[in-house]
Computed example of a mutant assay.
Amino acid sequence: MSPTQHLVLDPSTSLPPTRDHSDAAIPPSLPDAKEVKVHPTISGSENASLYFVGTATTILEWAGVRLMTDPNFLHAGDHVHLGPGVTSTRVTNPALDLHDLPHIDVVLLSHYHEDHFDKKVEESLRRDLPIITTPHAKSHLTSKAGENEAFTSVYELDTFTSMVVTVKPAAEEPTHATRRVKALKVTAMPGKHVPPGILGTLNDMIGAIPPTNGWVLELGSCVEGSDESFQCGYRIYISGDTLMVDELKEIPQRYAGQTIDLMLVHLGGTTIPSQHTPLLMVTMDGRQGLELVRLIRPDVTIPIHFDDYDIMLSPLDDFKKAMTEAGLDKKVVYLDRGDNYKFSVKEM
């Protein structure tokens, strides 16, 4: 990774998310939410939102910026290839279609897997759309064969490395040497899609299942041109496709004394090679999800990635039951596809 990576987002530039959009066809906003939800015990002054599309695809809106995670817009009946001998069928529909997206400023991609970055998305996305991802995913996205096929604005982050993404101020805002601008700080977190041991070592050798990142996404501000001045007003941990492994224990150590305001946990108990031959679980089930809640201790948890594909064998009810039995019902918000969670980012 380059020691300094700089990305400036300009919300006033409303480019289409896909390269086959016409300007006239770009919707100005996301569709109205089926249901709007807020913090279970505290509400008021919400200035940001998270729209759940389906699978691990969410769209965060704040300070005029739209950030999309793990874009997957396949429909029920569509198939994905997830490794040698592993395919899966989608059993749900996304809350909106890929070509119904409004302007997207940046994509946060946890790993290069078709249920997180499907073939239609890969073919359709605008080539200069900024993508923050793993070194493995970057190597694929930037080396695509064919004229104008490679993605040109891809940023890689290794575990526990960060980059600050600034938001270009409106033209009428005064300029001075210490002007603070809205900013997002993205830090790669550890994740293991394959359990440690012989299977993990073997997978590292043959690369059957790609490496994955979790993320800490912080919303705040910094002095323009000074990443070191970043101050956080809201902190989100996104687990990515991981199991409950020892490496995750470093996350609360690194953020000791700092609040994790929101956790998006990838669940589903995804088990390969198929629902009929469930030999290896590669994402958290309900029990492991509860373990992660207890480890990270977020203020609020939202489960995602739990029932969209036929190899997800741990239904959301497993997590609901575990959270209820642990007395943590007031620490979780459940979103259906098309729901919106509104929250408040402190001014910094």
Rank of each mutant, 00 (worst) to 15 (best):
V121S: 04
D115R: 01
V106I: 11
K249S: 14
E173M: 15
R66I: 02
K330P: 04
H21D: 12
M263S: 14
T134E: 07
Y51Q: 10
L248D: 02
R297L: 15
A188I: 04
D100M: 08
T87Y: 03
K321V: 14
G44N: 12
M68H: 03
H113Q: 09
I251A: 05
P273A: 14
M312S: 10
H193L: 09
S12E: 13
L262S: 07
S124W: 13
L74P: 00
A63I: 00
N47R: 01
V8P: 04
L202Q: 11
L82F: 03
F52L: 04
T201V: 07
P3Q: 06
G77T: 02
I296W: 13
D329P: 07
P94K: 07
D115V: 09
G338W: 06
I272E: 02
T87E: 10
L219D: 05
E149P: 00
G54H: 00
V65E: 01
G269W: 01
A137Y: 03
D20T: 12
L98N: 05
G269I: 00
G207R: 05
D336R: 14
H103K: 11
I42T: 06
H305R: 07
D241S: 05
E218M: 08
E149I: 02
A95R: 00
Y155F: 13
P27N: 08
T277C: 11
D158G: 14
E114I: 00
T57V: 04
V293A: 11
S139N: 14
R127A: 10
V164Q: 05
R126C: 14
D308V: 09
L50P: 04
D227R: 14
L243D: 00
H6N: 13
D10S: 12
E123R: 12
T4R: 09
R19A: 04
D329W: 08
D307Y: 04
P273F: 11
S143H: 15
K182A: 09
T283I: 11
D318M: 09
F73G: 07
S239N: 10
H136A: 06
T152C: 10
P130E: 15
M189Q: 11
V107G: 07
H176N: 12
T271N: 10
A170H: 08
F230S: 11
A95L: 01
E172R: 15
I59A: 03
H305N: 10
D318E: 11
G327M: 02
V106W: 07
L290R: 08
A137V: 02
G286F: 10
S110Q: 06
L202S: 13
T161L: 01
S45M: 05
P31T: 04
L108G: 03
V38A: 10
P298L: 02
M244W: 09
V223W: 11
N148W: 13
E325M: 12
A208I: 12
A170I: 08
G327E: 14
T175L: 06
L108C: 09
G85F: 01
P71I: 04
T178D: 15
D307M: 14
D329I: 15
G44F: 10
E35T: 14
W62S: 03
E156S: 13
V80E: 00
D10W: 12
